[in-house]
Design a protein around this nucleic acid. Sequence first.
DNA 1: ATAGAATGAAAGTGTTTACTTGCATACAGG
DNA 2: CCTGTATGCAAGTAAACACTTTCATTCTAT
Lengths: 193, 193
Amino acid sequence: MDETSQKIIDAAMSLVRDKGYVATTTKDIAKLAGVNECTLFRKFKNKKDIVLNGMEQEKWRGNLTPEIFKHVKWELAPDLEMFMTEYMSRITPDFVKLSIGLRAPQLYEESAPLVMKVPQAFLSSLIEYFREMVQRGKMPDLDLECLAMTIFSSTFGYTFLRASFEDNLSSIKQEQFIKQSVETFIHGIIHKQ
Amino acid sequence: MDETSQKIIDAAMSLVRDKGYVATTTKDIAKLAGVNECTLFRKFKNKKDIVLNGMEQEKWRGNLTPEIFKHVKWELAPDLEMFMTEYMSRITPDFVKLSIGLRAPQLYEESAPLVMKVPQAFLSSLIEYFREMVQRGKMPDLDLECLAMTIFSSTFGYTFLRASFEDNLSSIKQEQFIKQSVETFIHGIIHKQ
DNA sequence: ATAGAATGAAAGTGTTTACTTGCATACAGG
DNA sequence: CCTGTATGCAAGTAAACACTTTCATTCTAT
């Protein structure tokens, strides 16, 4: 990837994040990238091609790899806290806004599967982790998919709300939220018959 | 509100929900409403005016009034289940999609405060409910704002994920999710020292 | 030093967009 | 029957859009 193309991609992606795909014009992109507008079309097929290329880059796609699930202590509390912390540090408000900006009819078909990858990966890794924990006798054998969905929904919900409304909705800090959620969750599943 | 204006608003709002504000053209709106394009501008100042009028209507804004918090039994389990169920039945996928479609630079300033009203109302009513429950000795006096955020984040997260990905992410049914989340949550806060 | 590649500048393409105008028609109320 | 209001229809406007073309300039590798 040559420097000019990268500048174009970076400009395009940050504009899509801020204004959405449809409202982002090629003129905007060129201006922000500091190149001539016609250069965009020498480097890429069209506007769509620019952001599709951007989505392939880890930089603009996030790198929530299942790798974080490899450094586990097999202790519910620190592990869950770590998963939630990792999610929130990798899926920043910028990524949340970007994934919303990409919801345009002109590229929905191509962008939706990529956008869905992160939650899918997180959720299935979490279920896998729970299964192993059950086998190790570290947690009760409840409906693991449902438990994973509970943890993921609240992680996702908090991340999204924060990206959208910042402190205007609630002043609860991230660590506080995570600590309390995990604690409540663990006490909740352990004291279940 | 005369019939023609209502048809125009309905057409505009459902297009914004499906394609987003910027991608929705006045031609589209006119066609779907079954009126001539110039009629839009006889009834409304401009395109923005149409959807701003739509957002004032309960039909397109949802009616998550604090009223649902009045029919409580003052029993944690059935009440929380009721709150979550009410939220999910009122904030349908259509509303979620609409609130995303409204995120356009051309009307963000005017739409954001309205979009934020629903979560704000829900969250503050929930905190109020917890306070009363504590006073009645029905739940321990923990960090109520944080607890409310936990319940709300997961309710919101589940609702949003379902609106975005339907069954492709997880096949967990709504009732199952609510029942399990509430159960875990209650056991969790009760068995805390 | 020179050839080739990358880029800018400027102008322009055809299309789409939000929004307007003028006039014909239908229809309801007095 | 007449008059005013609502709407359709057709045409049109100026601006913005994605994308193109031509030519001049700069940089780079040999």
